[in-house]
Design a protein around this nucleic acid. Structure first.
Lengths: 197, 197
DNA sequence: GTCTATACGAAGATAGAC
DNA sequence: GTCTATCTTCGTATAGAC
């Protein structure tokens, strides 16, 4: 009866390789884009060779989609936490400023999401996953708005879409023209619009 | 003294080839992205072979940058016209609705601009060109706002950046999740914020 | 399960014909 | 100036060793 311990550690080891490959892939896809990233670079970054990649994923597209699915799930989970932990509007804004000011302020995070969207726009079979992600983003803001404001002059969903659009748009401008727009211009705008300033 | 006419037509022919190649490149880069487009496809779409491409451009990057520069110039010129031809806010909004509702509603237009931005983010030497483009976009809205509103509670530039961000963000959502967000949600938002509705 | 070696195709770039 | 042919590099994917 050789080692129950060993079977477990083997399983963990496999999972670890997969995780490392996904982590590396996430970085490299963000840095170079889908088209320009090579599986060689991903394997190297993860500390393996291409063989390990093909042992875990069927193809480059398959790996990309695995990265995409994991990322979208994590993001939605993370967003839910922020909302639940911020009882007042003031709290939510303060939390937001720590991010800093915009969920998409992190360069790689922004690049990766942009890659996902481009991929979805060019691969119709993937489009529904991204559309669902955007819907959840709007739903997230809709909840946040409804929980803190009553008697809105317009539907909460409409405001939510505008807020999400602003968050995305300001992140875009701040990344491309950092000397002109700052990431926390998003919180500034929210405070201005809600009259909290 | 053989044919002044002929020299001219030769010059025009050269310019025409260049223009056709740029037009084709603009389409193909938008459809497939920088990484996945091949010079073969571009040449084919323009009705030439790769030889014609290399006769007119030094490399794939050189061609991409030529497309980028022409596009940015045209866009700025076009934007200026819309502003000058719309005396009232109502007129400007009506013009906008014809676009329809968002300057980036055209799929290829949106994809191409996104490619430009990604390229700029990954190629520091190109970044200033895109940053300048974003600045001009903000300047454009700043002028539009100043010309139609007095005694603003916040700097016109700040509002302009927010409006431009909204335009970009709504276009993004509308492209990725067309069943959830419509392109003219941008004009809706502007009308709501300006109290014109 | 991971690595090494390799097959295979694709695409950027160049050279020479016209 | 444009085309055809070719060189060369590179990257995906596979096969077989360990």
């Amino acid at each position: 009866m050789p080692a129950r311990v060993k079977r477990l550690s083997r399983t963990e080891s496999v999972a670890q390789t997969r995780t490392r490959l996904l982590d590396a892939a996430e970085e490299v896809f963000a840095e170079h884009g889908f088209g320009a990233t090579t599986l060689e670079r991903i394997a190297e970054r993860a500390g393996y060779t291409r063989g390990a990649v093909y042992a875990n994923f069927a193809s480059k597209d398959d790996l990309f989609l695995a990265v995409l699915d994991r990322w979208l799930d994590d993001d939605i989970e993370h967003g839910g936490r922020i909302n639940a932990e911020s009882p007042s509007v003031r709290d939510a804004f303060d939390r937001l400023r720590e991010l800093p000011g915009n969920r998409f302020a992190d360069r790689n995070r922004f690049l990766l999401l942009t890659e996902f969207r481009l991929y979805a726009l060019r691969n119709p079979e993937v489009a529904p996953r991204l559309a669902e992600y955007e819907r959840r983003g709007i739903a997230w803001y809709t909840d946040a708005i409804r929980a803190r404001a009553a008697d809105l002059p317009v539907p909460a969903e409409q405001l939510a879409a505008i807020v999400l659009a602003m968050e995305n748009g300001i992140a875009t401008l701040a990344h491309v023209a950092p000397d002109t727009v700052r990431h926390d211009a998003f919180v500034d705008a929210l405070e201005m619009l809600t009259g909290l300033r």
